[in-house]
Amino acid sequence: MESVLIIGTGGLAREFTAWCAARYTVAGYLSNNAEEHAAYRLPGRIFIDQVTPEQAGTRLAFLAIGSPAVKRQMHERLLQAGFSFPSFVHPSSSVAPASQLGDGVIVAPNCTVGPGVVVGRCSYLNFGCGIGHDAVLGDYCQVNPGAQIGGNAALDSAVLVGSNATILQKVRVGADATIASGALVMARVTAGATMMGNPAKRMRAFE
């Protein structure tokens, strides 16, 4: 099996470690938290803050980080260091052949990705989420468990969608927006906005 470097040592990294075990050997983790690596008995080595492909023993890396902003920063830095980012689809998920997944996209278990969907680089579709036909997700989006994105919806880069949130069809969400868990988004969302509730309303106090 090929070996990979996983970025992060938190919950997402631990989940991804389990999901990728049938396909990859984990060479190690890049993190600033050696205590997590030890406490959770994660396999492989721990690299603090920086690493080269030669040190890691692999050029393949996966970003298992929930923050879109940190994800973007780490991706840019590691690309310059010489790492590459394959996409990963768990075998329990359904991804339509006519969809397009960018480099570094992770599709967790039990997701459905419809035809014509485009998912940008290093976006993470967590378990049980659904992406309707012809929806477009920009780079570095984080779609958390159970979230549903309607057909022809458009998410710009680095959008965070909380667990069990719903974005209706044809709705556009601006870059760096946050959709809170359980929110129902029915209309266009301004870039950088935080949306909460059903129907979702902007909560400037959280921005």
Score class of each variant (00 low, 15 high):
S123Y: 10
V171E: 03
L125Y: 01
A158T: 05
V189G: 02
T166I: 14
N152S: 14
R172C: 12
I167W: 02
L137T: 02
L155T: 01
V171R: 00
T190I: 15
V136E: 07
S181K: 07
G162S: 12
R172A: 11
N152R: 14
V185R: 00
A180I: 04
R121H: 11
S123H: 09
G128V: 00
G132F: 06
I179H: 03
L137K: 01
P145D: 05
A153Y: 05
M186A: 12
G150L: 06
N152M: 10
P145H: 07
L125S: 10
K170V: 03
G146F: 10
I179K: 04
G132Q: 02
V185S: 02
L184W: 00
Q148N: 11
S163Q: 14
P145G: 00
A177Y: 04
V189R: 05
G132N: 09
V136K: 08
A180E: 03
V161A: 12
D156N: 06
G151M: 11
V143D: 05
T178D: 03
M186P: 12
L160R: 05
G150I: 11
Q169R: 11
A183Y: 03
A175K: 13
H133V: 02
A135S: 08
H133A: 04
T178R: 09
R121D: 10
R172Q: 13
G138V: 04
A187V: 12
A147R: 02
G174V: 04
A158W: 08
R172Y: 00
V161M: 04
D156T: 07
T178W: 06
A177D: 01
L155C: 11
I131L: 15
Y140D: 15
N126Q: 08
A187Q: 15
I149P: 01
A175N: 07
A165N: 01
N126Y: 05
G150W: 09
V119K: 03
S157F: 08
G174K: 04
H133T: 14
A177T: 01
V159N: 13
M186I: 14
G146E: 13
L125G: 04
L155W: 12
N152C: 15
R121V: 09
V185E: 03
L168Y: 08
Q169A: 14
N164H: 13
R121M: 10
C129I: 00
Y124D: 13
I167M: 03
I167P: 00
Y124E: 12
S181L: 09
A180K: 04
I131Q: 07
R188F: 06
G138N: 10
R188L: 10
A153Q: 07
Y140L: 05
